[in-house]
Nucleic acid binder design. Structure first.
Lengths: 328, 328
DNA sequence: AATCAAATTGTAATCGATTACATTTAGAAT
DNA sequence: ATTCTAAATGTAATCGATTACAATTTGATT
């Protein structure tokens, strides 16, 4: 592959002029420009990003941290990020941390090593202390999961309110025995959704019963199945369930289908509106997060932050999507 | 951020020695090494990948092309690729082409520009001509979708055989009216799965009826729903369906549930064994592809190819997973 | 023709690492 | 003490681009 010197030689100009043509500098005469352009064509030249990146001290790569590829929730967000950054000449380096701390270090180093110009983290399990340290010297944005009162800008939805509305919906349907399938409350979103759950119960003077609150060890379908099985073993069974993730809710639906063929149905509400949620039987009532838009927003915020602008936190709107799982 | 010269100065050695320490060269004396190491610690130094990459003329990035994030089939493969390449000090640049040709060009240029050292393509819609051109000068591996008799090494499963076995399973269950929900037959896998479908029918002297073969315009659930609706409008309805993707099969299941509450069930077989396929109601009989392993294999092949080794095509084993959707 | 400012082009330093080759040092053998 | 070899270290070129600054060209004006 040719380099810039060979182009310069071929076109009979200096490397500076070739570089100017490559970067559309206005001070190149038309004749010179076309000489250079034809040399580029003849030698099938592509400027090396390696040289350019070193000189410009940037990689034009955005690091995106996510806990797992297997939750479709993240796929949509990634779509938004990708569309936004590509339009600005950036690309994304997708990194699944799998909640493994040693992976985290690899990725943090990539930023320090200048292999990435900025970071969008969607990983609730991330080491916040280290991330904050990184954020002091590099652009970082949190997407979906964030830190209250922290210094890293974020885009998210109002989880507490959404949970409140979801549970209120269940109550207004006549349910008085409502269970919560939550993930680990070390995550902020889990604490917030629980808070919304409790606010709704209190507002209608319903008791909060610990035996109807189940904490899962992960967000996979199977965890939802298991959680629901445990809830169904209670002597007094709940009549409705709010799960903090669609994957859990879909697992719960599965468990209900398996265990209770003949019994009265149990209402289920999920969270995220992943595309599967309209394919289940019954279809799933859920809180729709604007995932694609959240991705775009996070990317815009990061790009602005990289330009040195101050960016404000953003809370996007959610929406309760009512489907069959809460319609008897 | 400090650079190698500052470390050299601080440690009282030359940059060459610092570089040797960084790269674990055996010819550095223990004293010198520790001097350098403490300088590195004191200045909190991280070597710049930009400089290193330029000098070594590599990016240690692998480009992975996929048509979409929204099909979970790809998520698992990516897991395998990521685990494999990370272990060798590489990272992946995930690129969703969305079947948009202009995106393709961006990505091809990234390789020519040295922003990526090699390519794994899982995109059936890719411009094969351009990819072959690229493959002449850069390492490229095809994963899942490939080109028969082409020159680019691939890893895949035997789609024709798997489809044959899936349809044979339906026939042995007593079904004589079997429909096919296929995607566009411009894709090799679609042609192969159709061939397997036809082989099974012929073997049992069943007619191939064009009105029971539906071609979708995509792989989303909704396409499966629509396809099944069309099939159910036939005056003579099929009693079983083979869909070439789990997403289509799950959509078909949904359509069956919606349209036929009281009728005798229609057996459904899918393809891929995505995790959601065990959460549907009924659970889905499907052909399991070793997705994680396929990712690992593709990554290994690419890494070997980058080392200059010749790599052979690999066909991995599949397995028919029988679940409720073919159990009456 | 001479002068001058503006437009264009070139020279060479620079980004931060690696490494071939040259040089110095250490330690053993005489 | 001298010589020699092996080990350790240093010097400087190199990868391929960008860009400040210098130098040259152009063309209008007098």
């Amino acid at each position: 592959m040719a380099n810039i010197h060979q182009i310069a030689e071929r076109a009979g100009v200096s490397v500076a002029t070739v570089s100017r043509v490559l970067n559309n500098a206005p001070t190149v005469s038309p004749k010179t420009r076309s000489k250079v352009e034809s040399a580029i064509k003849e030698l099938n030249y592509q400027p090396s990003m390696l040289g350019r990146n070193l000189r410009n001290s940037e990689s034009r790569l955005i690091l995106v941290l996510l806990p797992t590829f297997s939750n479709p929730f993240y796929s949509e967000i990634i779509n938004g990020i990708q569309d936004t950054v590509i339009a600005k000449g950036y690309n994304i380096l997708l990194c699944e941390t799998d909640s493994r701390p040693e992976r985290e270090n690899i990725y943090f180093n990539m930023v320090k090593n200048k292999l990435a110009d900025g970071v969008i983290s969607m990983d609730p399990t991330i080491n916040m202390k280290k991330l904050k340290e990184l954020a002091e010297s590099h652009p970082v944005i949190l997407c979906s999961e964030y830190e209250e009162g922290g210094c890293i800008p974020y885009v998210t939805v109002d989880s507490e309110l959404a949970a409140y509305q979801a549970v209120k919906h269940l109550i207004q349907l006549g349910n008085e025995k409502i269970a919560l399938i939550n993930s680990d409350e070390k995550f902020l979103y889990a604490r917030q959704r629980r808070a919304g759950f409790e606010r709704a119960l209190k507002e209608f003077s319903l008791p909060i019963r610990e035996e109807w609150i189940y904490h899962t060890k992960g967000l996979d379908f199977q965890h939802g199945v298991h959680a629901m099985r445990m809830l169904l073993q209670q002597e007094e069974k709940p009549t409705a369930v709010f799960a903090v993730s669609d994957t859990l809710a879909i697992g719960a639906l599965k468990a209900i289908n398996m265990e209770l063929r003949a019994m009265e149905p149990i209402a289920v509400v999920g969270f995220d509106n992943i595309s599967f949620s309209s394919m289940t039987n019954p279809t799933l009532t859920t809180v729709s997060q604007p995932m694609y838009n959240m991705g775009c927003t996070a990317a815009d915020m990061l790009l602005n932050s990289m330009k040195g602008e101050r960016v404000e936190n953003i809370v996007l709107d959610h929406e309760l999507i009512i489907r069959e799982s809460t319609m008897g």
